[in-house]
Design a protein around this nucleic acid. Structure first.
Lengths: 339, 339
DNA sequence: CTGAAAGCGCTAACAC
DNA sequence: GTGTTAGCGCTTTCAG
């Protein structure tokens, strides 16, 4: 390994001076600087982060804890947002997947301590509350897509309620009054928020809720649940008195509702309008007609998480500890006025 | 930071002894060991990896370079395979995304050198050859989903040819002789391999190729290409003399072919059989009927990559430098004999 | 503006 | 079985 000393020897200066050049510290005569830079180049020197960390105990590495997010297709955009934002910084990511297993999560935190990590992004696949008994070490941490009890830790989540409300409003504005809802796994916080928005949205429009048109799209324990949207949607739609529009818990469910409609010979959006949630592109731009959906602001959430964490590390805790990020409607072709 | 010395002081032994206990080295009297372990516990000591690395220059961190794989939904299972296999080892992953940008790739390698990383997984989203001029440092490296010129580096790829062949065979066995092919972006190696298999598979069955039934599903530069499978598939299928089965370049394309079929009022699989490629679950188990597809062995490839890299680091270079991993057909309900 | 000395936490090498 | 000494590459502190 070529060290700062080798560079110093070649440049004919002391090692301290090389260190100054590398870190852009203090005032250095341009000539000296050039000499050093040349030596660095010819030797192919790169600083040793381990040594630097040992001396300064300021790490250039941040930790990324995910339950399953980075190995699951849905919320990868959060990670992408974090990664992209980190590109403009000197930080790198040490990533650990826990599969939502508390033991692995413990290990993750231990690994982070061993590496003297500067801060941690704690990202979950589903918008949810973190269990009360979860222990967070004192390392600067930002929660993404989840929040801590009493908001003890800074957190960034999507505004699922607003998103749900705007989705319903969009349908109402198009003239729909017969609206069904195929629900996300009800154990998920997002389902709760979007569900309340659905009821409130209908109420605000003076539309009565048809209970038989509210059906589950996914049932069972989280991470082990089953898609049942197809059968349930098919049952609702296979009836002369059927909804003219369906709100879907997410795009995956929307795909099944879409299949149920076409299976019955119904056309989207002429016979049924469908609106999704997430803007999971493989589905939304993959099916025909492309799906109108409520986009989750994952990339922006990731980018904000980076800004927040770096601020905290720099000693500037955010004024707003809990941020709810707005969801934007993406209008494509799966919604039209009812006939 | 609590160090080995603090532990030593509390346990009333020398720091070297603590080190031995921590690393399970040499013979130590059970009593001493217990004392040390207790001190470790009460102080909450964790070893400082930076210090360890400095001393031994053996890192507990491996690097993961991806083009877009970990921020894109398709090949995340490779990363999942790697992560899961790493769970049983003392290694952690430092991840860098390059967006297939050579400048970022350079930076990634520099970062890895700075951290004295032990080895690198170089993972690409599409099965492809790495450009001739790509520079790989001397760090132990395993390529996954891609291969180097002259196989200069160990690599693990899926056997797309075998997969393509088996897909066609499956259709032929079901009695199909009128088979169309909606092609993956032809710039991708996988498209080439699967395409050759398609031709060879038909030839082996004595079926003549209908050129007009071979159409692109994606066109344009990689990472900026456009899905055109829907229109193209629709054109082929909207004809009394139409194929009874369609081989799809991947599952995304299969989804579009499926939409094209239902758009024309055709039923899958009664009127058209569809076979996909990848086993991208959101699609394959999301649509109705669930999609028969050729699964890409991503998780296994990831797991094998871990074994290979650890072997190389341990000084046991693999006998087989280039591994082609078998693709397995996953039979669901989108294929049936032609009417 | 530049250099010298010290020490971060750990383990290799050697002693006892 | 256990302890001592030294040094990995860097930056902090202090001197010049």
């Amino acid at each position: 390994m070529v060290s700062i000393k080798d560079v110093a020897a070649l440049a004919g200066v002391s090692d301290r001076t090389v260190s100054r050049v590398v870190n852009g510290e203090g005032l250095i005569r341009p000539k000296t600087k050039k000499k050093v830079q040349k030596a660095i180049e010819t030797l192919g020197y790169v600083p040793n982060q381990a040594a630097r960390l040992m001396r300064t105990s300021r790490s250039s590495v941040l930790g990324l804890i995910t339950d399953v997010v980075s190995t699951t297709p849905f919320s990868t955009d959060i990670v992408r947002g974090i990664q992209d934002a980190l590109d403009d910084t000197p930080y790198t990511l040490l990533t650990v997947n826990t599969s939502a297993d508390p033991a692995k999560e413990q290990r993750a935190w231990k690994i982070f301590r061993e590496h003297g990590i500067g801060g941690v992004f704690y990202v979950t696949m589903f918008h949810r509350h973190v269990p009360r008994d979860t222990e967070f070490p004192s390392t600067p941490t930002v929660l993404v897509n989840c929040s801590a009890p009493d908001q003890a830790l800074p957190s960034i989540v999507p505004d699922d309620y607003q998103g749900g409300l705007d989705a319903v409003r969009h349908l109402v504005e198009q003239g729909h009054r017969k609206i069904a809802y195929v629900v996300l796994n009800e154990l998920i916080l997002a389902a709760d928020l979007r569900g309340r928005a659905f009821f409130d949205g209908l109420a605000a429009a003076g539309i009565e809720v048809r209970k038989e048109w509210i059906v589950p799209g996914r049932v069972g324990a989280i991470f082990a649940d089953k898609l049942v949207a197809f059968e349930n949607a098919r049952r609702i739609l296979d009836n002369p008195d059927r909804p003219t529009a369906v709100v879907c818990g997410n795009d995956e469910i929307a795909l099944q509702v879409y299949c149920a409609a076409t299976d019955l010979g119904l056309r989207v959006p002429d016979d049924v309008s469908i609106i999704g949630f997430d803007d999971f592109q493989v589905i939304t731009t993959g099916i025909q007609p492309p799906l109108t959906t409520m986009a989750l602001p994952y990339r922006d959430m990731g980018a904000l998480a980076v800004r927040m964490l770096l601020d905290i590390i720099a000693g500037h805790p955010p004024k707003k500890k809990h941020v709810e990020y707005r969801c934007e409607l993406v209008i494509r072709n799966s919604v039209s006025p009812p006939k």
